[in-house]
Simulated assay, not measured.
Amino acid sequence: MKKNVLSLALTVIFGATAIAGPVEGEKKEVKTDASTVTWKAYKVTGSHTGTIALKSGALMFDEGKLTGGEFTVDMTTINTTDLEGGAKGKLDGHLHSDDFFATASNPTSNLVFTNVEASGKNSYKVTGDLTIKGITKPVTFDVSVYGSKATATLKVDRAQYNVKYGSGSFFDDLGDKTIYDEFDLVVDLEF
């Protein structure tokens, strides 16, 4: 009985100490309904733009400075915003197909910050692991934080994620049917 009381007392003391310990940082959940991810892809004959929804996300701060982040994108929401009608439906369907992002078998993509360095008062150079179609590659980009908002712009090389359709990296003699490998993501976050 004394042994049980002593064990209980030690658990309470050490448990309280662990709870009262110093806080390493603050995790701020992103408001997915108020945040946007816009993409722009380029081809020889022009470009297309669209959006994709965040499923979840958080930024980590320590004493007001950005220290980390983690995001999940809902790939099933990828859509085109510069087309209408049948052309929009055709391109949206193609983006979901195995030719592009295979969203039926890869419904999410993820980004996890691996390194954050301050590059100015409110700006940071971030390196992260980006996973698309189950393939993880490092990306580097800039993030700006102002109050409860953050913005980032990054270039993604789709060829690194086995997104082959219309890519000059995989196919020869595409001519004006070539779709460039790099596409842009513009991310506006609220937290």
Rank of each mutant, 00 (worst) to 15 (best):
K3L: 14
S7P: 03
S7M: 04
A9C: 08
L10C: 06
T17L: 15
A18C: 08
P22Q: 11
P22V: 09
E24P: 10
G25M: 11
V30Q: 08
V30F: 07
T32C: 06
T38L: 07
W39G: 11
A41I: 13
T45D: 04
H48K: 01
H48L: 00
T49L: 00
G50F: 00
K55I: 11
S56C: 00
S56V: 01
A58D: 12
L59V: 05
L59R: 01
G64R: 10
K65V: 14
T67M: 09
G68E: 09
E70G: 10
I78F: 09
N79V: 02
T81E: 11
G86L: 10
A87C: 00
A87F: 08
G89C: 02
L91M: 08
G93Q: 03
H94A: 01
L95C: 04
L95R: 08
S97E: 07
D98T: 14
F100Y: 15
F100P: 14
F101P: 13
A102D: 15
T103E: 03
S105H: 09
N110H: 10
N110E: 10
L111F: 14
F113I: 13
N115V: 08
N115D: 15
V116L: 10
V116M: 12
K121V: 12
N122H: 13
N122W: 11
S123P: 10
Y124G: 07
D129S: 13
L130T: 05
L130F: 02
T131Q: 07
K133T: 01
G134S: 02
G134Y: 03
I135D: 00
T136V: 02
K137C: 03
P138S: 00
V139C: 01
T140G: 06
F141K: 05
F141H: 06
V145E: 09
Y146L: 13
K149H: 14
A152H: 05
T153D: 14
V156H: 02
V156E: 03
D157A: 03
A159K: 14
Q160F: 12
N162W: 02
S169V: 14
F171C: 07
D172I: 03
D172S: 13
L174F: 10
G175F: 09
D176E: 09
D181K: 06
D181A: 09
D181Y: 08
D181V: 08
D184V: 13
L189H: 04
L189C: 06
